[in-house]
Every structure is written in structure tokens, then in C-alpha cells.
Design a protein around this nucleic acid. Structure first.
Length: 574
RNA sequence: GCACCGGUGGCUCAAUGGAUAGAGCACCUGACUUCGGAUCAGGCGGUUGGGGGUUCGAGUCCCUCCCGGUGCGCCA
């Protein structure tokens, strides 16, 4: 598409507008290049040009300012694009420009791989229009993100927008509260002259710091991210009130609807089902029935590298006079996911692009991902590979007789199980060095091992039902009550009985690897017993009832842990 | 420099202060004509980074040193 006349930038803008209008900017199909893939490809190229081209770099500042300033709510995307297109010579049209042409592609266009020229073209003509386009780009990426997470069975209730924290006056009120409490002061001299800072010197948490002052408002009057985060945290805790007690809240507007068939099933976006809200700056817009914010306990699930700003936020809540709320503000920190050097080399080999890493970098135990440098694994691409590998494994075991629809669903379940278990099995404060071979493993200590145990257990009951021997939980309990359990079976019962305790421990320690490892323990015990404890072909009725009772307990326990707690779907067959 | 997190078999990871430090991968040897072999049984491989201390008992707690990572923006 977009093979019309005109300079590259004009073609891209026109194509963007057309596809936005046709609602084809974002795809719901796994494995096809999508809008976020395009951005992923473009980001490192644009970054390289920033580094190589000072004049081009200046444009970034202009665009960021335009985005900060925002745009009129009346400005539609077509109008914004029309405004940008009307600027004479809005594209430089030379082959060296960062966005070039390479023919048909399912995306907007394929970026040119060659480096850039030095003329950045005309200055940003219409900041409002630029901000409007930026908002559309952000929303398209957000929708891609939602679909990706939906594939993993993750749904959302509300999407708070940072711009609305300012737009709704949250920061304005938080700033007043901070001033009234004496928590911040305006610096009149020194390197922070003209800034509003929060002093952390008196807090033991920050003792020993070279500079114990955190700037919340810059000398140019613009609030920092941490400042906005304090206002946001006050809203989360229901502490953002006017002097008359009126609670501050966002406006809310429907963003999408979604459905999910079961606890670990894929989340699908469409026109039916539960509503996903986004915030708005207009308090007159109210959600249908849900309320948000004003929590008694707040978990901020953020990378461990945000520990320092998160501490500042917590400290701000405390000095504002809410020590209990500060204690109820929990930073659920997790270590980063990085790449093994082998994974990096594989990515370079696959993409044909060199990341330009030094030998020193490649000698490290892991390499940090970087969107700017294009170093990373795209979740959808990984999932697509997992699905195809799982499908292949199913076909190898079951022959070609599996209906394509059933095979697709089972392969998805196995792929999601493999991915989610790999993420869950490791404690959260250890760097997860991503390795392709490990991620694609389906045997051993993996998600599919756990899924297989659940599938196998259920198969026992399918077979029993065929012979009219399925029984019921109540019958088993009654019959097994007076019988003595052999050690192995008893061990499995005990382990199942420890589940509540393990859940409580996982919650109190915020360590969900405990659940993963508990599930693995259960599956391992079951698999060991499976061979020597046939149920259908049990030597006598009493033995059969005993085994049936224990395996029934296992089947329900493992399925609950996998689907309800770990979000790992249990497929019908594998 | 200060702060936080890691250091456990060749590799990737477990282990509320408590039993002989457990799993998986890799390597080697095996397994039911029966509910599915993505499984199971067995073997090989560890002075838990070094040193000191507390304790009846330390991978785990304290001190110290070494190695690796991250954070300490008028970025978000």
C-alpha cells in the first residue's frame, strides 16, 4: 500500500490516516507483522540517526515539547494529518531519509536500511497536530500491547493516562498538600535554584546520600515524573482531597470490551463482554459501575531499578502525614529480564542486524535488553515460535488426525504454559537471563510437564467413565475413609494439603515462584505414582477407590493452581 | 563513593535457621504387549565465592573481604 506519489513522510502519514480510519492499524492475528513491530524496527534506526545527525536530534526536542503541550480535544486525527500534509515540502523525499520505500508490505511501509542524510527537513509546523499524531501512535501501540497480553490470558480493568494526572489537576492539589505540610521547599540558590525539592535528609532510608534532595518541579516550572507519581499514588490511596473533603478522581471513558472463557483462557477484545475503561480529564465522564482508586493497600508492580523513585513516593506519603498509608504502599519489585549472549547472537543471526556489541559485552553473563538499540525478544514472535513448536510436538505424538482448530487451541495452551512457567519459576529478585533453548524446552522442569500431569490425571477419569467406574468425590471420601494409604499416595495427599499454606506464603512474601515450585512438586509426585498405581486395572476394588480418591484430589488441586493462580491453561489433550 | 540485589555440581535454578543441600538440562545405563514415554527407575557430578562469628544446629543470621549486576537525572 501507500505506493502513491509524494515524499516518504507524506505517504506514511496518508497511509497511517487511511489505516486508522479503516481500523486496520492493529492486527489481532498472531504471527503477522503488526504496528508495534514496525515501531520496534523504527526505534533503533531513529535513535542511530539522532546520534549521527545533530540537526535531526533537535527535532526530537521539538516533538517532545509538542507532546507535552498537548492538543485540543476537538482536533481529529484526519484534521491533524491534513494539517501536517499541507505544509509545503513536508518530506525531503531523498532515499537516505529514515523512512523509505521498498514496495508492498503489510505494514505502513518498510523502512529503508541505509543511513540518513543530514537535512532534517522543515521545522515542526503544527505542534498540536504532532501531539495528536503522537497520541494515535501511542494508542495503536497500547492496543497491540493489550492483544499481546490477552494472548497470555492477562486482562485489564482501567488504563490510567499520565496526561490525565495533570489534566485532572491531581498534581496541582498534590503540590498544595506538599507545600502545606512543609515537605517541599523552593530552592533560591545552589545548583537546584528555582526548583521545588523534597528533602530526604531526615529520613533514615536515605541517610548517607550525597544529595538527599529530590527535585519535583524543575526550574522551568514543569513537574518531574516523580512528582506526578506522588500525585498518582495519593489518588491510588484515596488521599487526594480538597479542603472540604471532596475526593479527586479521574474521568473515565470506555476504551474496549473483552471476554475470557476461563481463568487462563485467551482474552479477546471485541464488541461484547466486560468493559475496559481509560481515564479522561473530564470528571463528568463516569464509568458504568466500577470505581477505581482509593485502595487500602497499593502494590506497584515495577522493575527493581525503580526502587529509588518508589522510595521517594512512599516517603512523600509518609511526610504528608499518612504513615499507615505509606506502609500500605508496596513496591512489588522484580529483577529485569535480560538476554544470554547466545540469545543475542541468535537474534543477530536471525535479523541480519548487528547490535554492535563489544567482546567485553558479549563476555558478560547476560545482556540488558534495549528498545533503543533494538536488542530484545518480541513477545509475539516468541509466542508464535512456541505455538508452532508445540503444534509440531502434538502432531508428532498424536499423528495428523487432530482437527486444526483443536490443535491450534492446544498448541496455544502449551506455548502459554511454557512461557508463563518459565517466568514464574524463578524468584523475582534474580535476573532472568533469557535463553531460547530453555524457553522452547517442553520436557523436564517446564510448564508442559505440569500441564501433562493434569491432562494425564484427567485421562484416568475419562477411562474410568467409559467403564462406568468414575465414582464421585463423595463416594471416594466415604469409601477411602476407613482404608490405610500406602506411603507414596499419602505423600501426594499431604502435598496437596499444603497448598493453602503455600499460597499464603507466596502472597505474604510476594514470591510466586513458591507456587510454581509447589505445583512442580505435586506433578512430580503424581508422575512417580502414575506408573505403579493403575486405577482402571487396579487389583481390587478397595485399591481402585483409594487410588481414584487420591488422584481426584491431585487433579483438582493441580488444575486450580495452574489455571486460577498461575494463569497456565490446562489443554484438553497434548 | 553510598545503597540495593545476586554468587549453590559443566549449565539454568530450588531450599519458613532444622533430616543425607534438592530439581531440570547435559552425559551414561535401563523401563510397563495394561489409564498416553512431554513420563518413570538408576548412575555421574557439591568442602553452597573467601575468612571470621552467633547457635544444640547456618546455603540461610551478623561482621569482613572478593567477584558480578543495578540504582543514586531539572529522563520517563
Amino acid at each position: 500500500m501507500a505506493q502513491g506519489e509524494g515524499a516518504p513522510r507524506q505517504r506514511v502519514l496518508a497511509a497511517f490516516a487511511a489505516r486508522h480510519e479503516a481500523r486496520t492499524l492493529v492486527s489481532t492475528a498472531l504471527g503477522t507483522p503488526d504496528f508495534d513491530d514496525l515501531c520496534w524496527d523504527l526505534y533503533p534506526r531513529v535513535t542511530r540517526r539522532y546520534e549521527a545527525d545533530e540537526a535531526f536530534s533537535a527535532r526530537r526536542t521539538e516533538v517532545l515539547h509538542a507532546m507535552e503541550a498537548g492538543f485540543s480535544p476537538d482536533l481529529t486525527l484526519p484534521a491533524a494529518i491534513a494539517s501536517l500534509l499541507s505544509v509545503p515540502g513536508a518530506g525531503d523525499g531523498r532515499p537516505g531519509s529514515p523512512v523509505g520505500q521498498e514496495g508492498e508490505d503489510s505494514r505502513l511501509s518498510t523502512p529503508n536500511r541505509s543511513g540518513g542524510g543530514s537535512d532534517p527537513g522543515p521545522r515542526t509546523p503544527d505542534p498540536g497536530a504532532v501531539a495528536r499524531v503522537a497520541a494515535a501512535v501511542a494508542e495503536a501501540n497500547l492496543r497491540c500491547h493489550l492483544i499481546t497480553m490477552g494472548r497470555l490470558g492477562v486482562a485489564y480493568d482501567v488504563l490510567p493516562h499520565e496526561s490525565d494526572i495533570l489534566g485532572r489537576g491531581f498534581w496541582k492539589r498534590a503540590f498544595e498538600l506538599l507545600q502545606d505540610s512543609g515537605a517541599i521547599r523552593l530552592e533560591t540558590e545552589g545548583k537546584n535554584a528555582g526548583c521545588w525539592v523534597m528533602s530526604l535528609a531526615e529520613s533514615p532510608e536515605f541517610a548517607g546520600m550525597a544529595d538527599a534532595d529530590k527535585i519535583l518541579v524543575r526550574s522551568n516550572g514543569i513537574v518531574t515524573y516523580t512528582g506526578k507519581d506522588i500525585a498518582y499514588q495519593l489518588w491510588k490511596l484515596g488521599l487526594l482531597r480538597d479542603p472540604d473533603g471532596t475526593l479527586h478522581d479521574f474521568g473515565y471513558r470506555p476504551f474496549a470490551r473483552w471476554q475470557q472463557a476461563g481463568p487462563a483462557a485467551e482474552v479477546r477484545y471485541g464488541t461484547e463482554g466486560r468493559e475496559l475503561e481509560r481515564t479522561s480529564a473530564d470528571p463528568a465522564e463516569r464509568p458504568a459501575g466500577d470505581t477505581f482508586g482509593a485502595g487500602t493497600r497499593v502494590y506497584n508492580v515495577i522493575d527493581v531499578r525503580q526502587s529509588y523513585p518508589q522510595k521517594v513516593v512512599k516517603e512523600a506519603i509518609r511526610v504528608l502525614g499518612y504513615p499507615e498509608a505509606a506502609e500500605a504502599s508496596v513496591h512489588f519489585a522484580y529483577e529485569m529480564v535480560a538476554l544470554t549472549p547466545a540469545a543475542v547472537k541468535r537474534l543477530e543471526a536471525t535479523s541480519g542486524v548487528s547490535f554492535g556489541l563489544s567482546d567485553e559485552d558479549l563476555a558478560k553473563p547476560f545482556i540488558e535488553m534495549s528498545g533503543r538499540r533494538g536488542i530484545g525478544v518480541e513477545a509475539d514472535a516468541l509466542l508464535a515460535t512456541l505455538v508452532s513448536e508445540a503444534g509440531r510436538a502434538i502432531a508428532a505424538r498424536q499423528g495428523e488426525g487432530v482437527a486444526p482448530a483443536a490443535l491450534g487451541e492446544r498448541a496455544r495452551a502449551i506455548a502459554v504454559g511454557a512461557l508463563r512457567y518459565q517466568m514464574a519459576r524463578q524468584s523475582r529478585n534474580r535476573v532472568l537471563a533469557f535463553d531460547f533453548d530453555e524457553a522452547l524446552a517442553f520436557e523436564g522442569d517446564t510448564g508442559p510437564y505440569l500441564q501433562y500431569s493434569a491432562v494425564r490425571a484427567r485421562k484416568i477419569f475419562d477411562k474410568l467413565a467409559e467403564h462406568g467406574l468414575a465414582g464421585s468425590a463423595a463416594e471416594d471420601a466415604a469409601a477411602a475413609g476407613g482404608l490405610e494409604l500406602p506411603d507414596g499416595l499419602w505423600e501426594l495427599v499431604l502435598a496437596c494439603g499444603r497448598t493453602d499454606e503455600m499460597v499464603a506464603k507466596a502472597v505474604s512474601s510476594l514470591e510466586f515462584s513458591l507456587l510454581a515450585s509447589h505445583a512442580h512438586d505435586l506433578a512430580m509426585l503424581f508422575h512417580k505414582l502414575y506408573h505403579d498405581n493403575p486405577v482402571l486395572h487396579a487389583p481390587d476394588e478397595a485399591t481402585r477407590v483409594l487410588r481414584r480418591a487420591v488422584f481426584r484430589l491431585f487433579a483438582t488441586t493441580i488444575t486450580d493452581i495452574l489455571e486460577e493462580l498461575l494463569g497456565i491453561p490446562v489443554p484438553a489433550e497434548m
